[in-house]
Structures are given as C-alpha cells and as structure tokens.
C-alpha cells in the first residue's frame, strides 16, 4: 500500500514536522509545548515516512535503533539533573545561560531545556519502538 502522492508528500512533510517538533520542544519551557508533545510530533513525522515508504526504509532513514534513543534520552535527563550538583546546588536545580547570537538576539538555554530534550528523545524512541513493532506485524 504505497501511494505515489503520499510518498512524495512525505518526503517534503517529514522535515517540516521535524522542524516544528524542535520549535515546540524549545518554546515548551514557558509556553504550551515541551518535550513530550515535541517528541510525539517528531515520532509522527517518522511514522508518516514509514507509512509511505515502509518500515525498513524508515529504520534506515533513522539510522539508530529507537532503543538507543530511549537510553540516550534518559541519560540526557539524568545529566541535566546532575549538572546542578557541580555548582553545589541540589539535584535537578535549574541553571540558565544566555547565548548572544548575532541575528537571533538573546537565546536562553538551561538545564530544564536539556531535561526536556531528554523527554523528547525518550518519547520518540518509545513511540517508534511500539509503532514499528505493530507495523511490522502485518
């Protein structure tokens, strides 16, 4: 069941989805969004690709095993909590730095965002593990 329209559309839609998922991940700290929703969106992008081109193609496109994504995400979240320990604060204390970028202005980056990135990866990984397994069954 591969339609040409879907296949071509997915080629263009998947990057757009992924870009918006990152955007939503970033704005999530103070506005609606965040790692969970961003992760679901990114997973949806890859699932769309898998529906259009087949699971094997999607796996090949993803390159890494979704399980590794889960582990990497958990590790990122754990590290974001542990970073505060180096400055003598308790576990999970939020730390922020301001990046001054030439065109974009000020870009605040902090450990809560890093934690969210961990959530993002875990959600992508888990969703893909489950859905790939279901799609490969039939």
């Amino acid at each position: 069941m591969t339609s040409t329209i879907l296949r071509i559309a997915s080629r263009y839609l998947t990057p757009v989805f992924l870009f918006f998922s990152l955007l939503i991940l970033y704005r999530g700290h103070n506005a609606p969004g965040g790692g969970f929703i961003g992760g679901l969106l990114a997973a949806a992008a890859l699932i769309l690709y898998a529906m259009a081109c087949g699971v094997d193609a999607a796996r090949a496109k993803l390159r890494i095993d979704p399980r590794i994504l889960v582990a990497a995400g958990l590790l990122t979240a754990l590290l974001s909590g542990a970073l505060a320990l180096f400055s003598g604060n308790s576990f999970l204390t939020g730390r922020w730095v301001m990046l001054h970028l030439p065109f974009l202005g000020e870009l605040p980056l902090g450990t809560p965002l890093l934690f969210d990135l961990g959530v993002y990866l875990v959600v992508i990984g888990i969703t893909l593990i489950m859905l790939f397994a279901l799609m490969e069954e039939d």
Binding site: D65, R67, I68, A71, A72, L74, L75
Partner: peptide, 8 residues
C-alpha cells in the same frame, strides 16, 4: 539501567 539499555 541506561547503560544496560545502551549495551542492548
């Protein structure tokens, strides 16, 4: 657990 999962 994380490291074990990485060494799947």
């Amino acid at each position: 657990a994380i490291l074990s999962a990485l060494a799947w």
